[in-house]
């Protein structure tokens, strides 16, 4: 099993992701520079957080046209697992691999804090190590995580079960009070229709070891590995 971490100019969570896969999950992992044009031998790709291209124009708008992106899209199309975290999520939205777009946080502030998330399903490649409706704590760190899509797209995602993580209270209450950025329907993470591409604003790679204050993020990577080994 081989993971790839795609590195764009301005990515800054690439090493964290690499570290977690290599040292914590103990699986093979390689960096993939955004100027590469092909991908081979990878089982899962991670698009890490950061500020690719300085967030110029719109977050993810320029990275979406990096030379590696056609290969990432082919990989996703063929059913490969793709996890976009924070800026990686924004890139997946701009690339059209996931529906919707990001707006500035409703508070206009860059928010860096642990938040509670509800795991809406545990029958996916990304969440099979959790319990359904489990509440977990994972940190966010973003200025543009205010997810938006049109009402028809939101309904489609609800009907297809594409909403995987929602912001909530420690008790699992999903109200605006516990929504840090104003996102539609408290959305923190969504999948594509086929369920092999996940975009999420929280950073599981920052919460996968006890020394960092918590390890609820661990189970996202563990779920992917579980799924790829065919036991998910």
């Amino acid at each position: 099993m081989r993971f790839g971490v795609v590195v764009f100019p301005g990515s800054n969570c690439d090493r964290d992701c690499y570290h977690v896969i290599k040292e914590v999950m103990e699986e093979p992992v390689e960096y993939i520079w955004h100027k590469e044009k092909s991908l081979s031998g990878f089982d899962a790709l991670i698009l890490p957080g950061g500020f690719s291209y300085g967030d110029y124009l719109r977050t993810g708008a320029i990275a979406r046209f990096s030379p590696i992106m056609p290969a990432v899209m082919d990989f996703a199309q063929a059913g490969g697992l793709v996890l976009g975290i924070c800026n990686g999520f924004q890139i997946l939205l701009e690339a059209g691999l996931l529906p919707g777009a990001m707006l500035r946080n409703s508070s206009l502030k860059f928010i860096c804090q642990p938040v509670f998330l509800k795991i809406q399903r545990n029958d996916t490649p990304f969440s099979n190590k959790f319990k359904s409706m489990q509440v977990v704590k994972i940190p966010i760190a973003h200025g543009e995580g205010n997810y938006y899509c049109d009402p028809r797209t939101l309904q489609e995602m609800k009907d297809n079960g594409q909403i995987l993580f929602t912001y909530c209270s420690a008790d699992g209450e999903e109200t605006m009070e516990y929504n840090p950025n104003g996102s539609l329907a408290n959305i923190a993470g969504i999948m594509n229709g086929k369920g092999n591409v996940l975009g999420m604003m929280p950073h599981p790679e920052r919460y996968s070891e006890d020394i960092l204050g918590g390890r609820d993020g661990f189970n996202i990577f563990a779920s992917m590995i579980n799924w790829l080994k065919g036991v998910g």
Binding site: L57, A61, I62, A101, Y148
Partner: peptide, 8 residues
């Protein structure tokens, strides 16, 4: 293609 995002 690039300058505007048709979603928003």
């Amino acid at each position: 293609k690039l300058l505007a995002n048709p979603v928003i």
